[in-house]
């Protein structure tokens, strides 16, 4: 059975007075296997952020089911949602979302503190991941004291430290310069090789080219998908590029 199964998800936003409504997701179905590295691509307004919010249980689908490791997200009670997210998902944001009142270390500890873990265990978990992420020397610093790349690596550490079933990344390279972007993408690949499932939303071809599978979303439906197979990053880049070109020209791939 797949780690994540999304079936027939639909999301309709209604304006508050009940007048007009917008269909952000029409009918989305896909699944993610354990250990996979999936990128979802789409333009602004294609519905990819809505999809990610539903997967992260930040928002509820109007209809359809999302099943993570056997649990139906729709059936989780409102009061348990935050807990579920904390225990099962790691989130990496475009703008890092580090808290400026905490040191990087405390930022990374935050989900564990919320889960009520012992300081000793938090420390040992951090020791495991700080070296591969290259943040060992900056843990005592505050977010405003470090570079964007370092911030994002700390945010990745915060996502990893709960040992989540899946990492959700929302445009993780969006706020980084190209060098930091490359480093972060390499890091994602490395983390993925260690067995971590990653689901990334992006509109950067470069970022997507690191994934093992790329889903294309347009106007609220999954439009197309590409498997990496044995292609290198460069070949993958080419494939994605071609697809995007076709999409832009209004071509029909189906």
């Amino acid at each position: 059975m797949s780690l994540l199964e999304v079936t027939g998800v639909k999301k309709i936003y209604r304006s508050r007075r009940g007048g007009s409504s917008v269909e952000a997701l029409k009918n989305v179905s896909f699944s993610v296997e354990n250990g996979e590295y999936v990128a979802i691509m789409g333009e602004s307004g294609s519905g990819k952020t809505t999809l990610l919010n539903i997967l992260a249980a930040l928002d509820k689908a109007t209809s359809g089911t999302v099943i993570l490791d056997g649990m139906n997200l729709n059936s989780i009670k409102e009061s348990k949602v935050a807990r579920f997210r904390r225990d099962n998902l790691g989130y990496v944001f475009q703008d890092f979302n580090l808290l400026d009142t905490f040191t990087l270390e405390d930022n990374i500890f935050l989900p564990l503190v919320l889960a009520g873990k012992e300081p000793k265990e938090m420390r040992s978990r951090l020791d495991e991941i700080s070296a591969p992420l290259g943040i060992g020397s900056i843990l005592k610093k505050y977010p405003y004291e470090v570079s964007g790349g370092q911030k994002q690596r700390s945010a990745v550490a915060r996502a990893l430290i709960t040992r989540p079933k899946m990492i959700l990344a929302d445009e993780p390279t969006g706020a980084l310069d190209s060098k930091s972007s490359d480093e972060l993408l390499d890091l994602f690949a490395k983390v993925n090789q260690m067995g971590q499932t990653i689901l990334m939303v992006t509109h950067s071809t470069k970022a997507a080219s690191h994934a093992s599978r790329v889903l294309f979303i347009k106007d609220g439906i999954i439009f197309h998908q590409i498997y990496r197979g044995n292609s290198s990053d460069t070949q993958m880049y080419q494939k994605i590029s071609d697809t995007l070109n076709l999409l832009a020209q209004g071509g029909d791939l189906a």
Binding site: R83, R85, R86, L99, A115
Partner: peptide, 8 residues
């Protein structure tokens, strides 16, 4: 942010 990270 804290809610996204899992604060209830």
């Amino acid at each position: 942010i804290m809610q996204k990270v899992g604060m209830t």
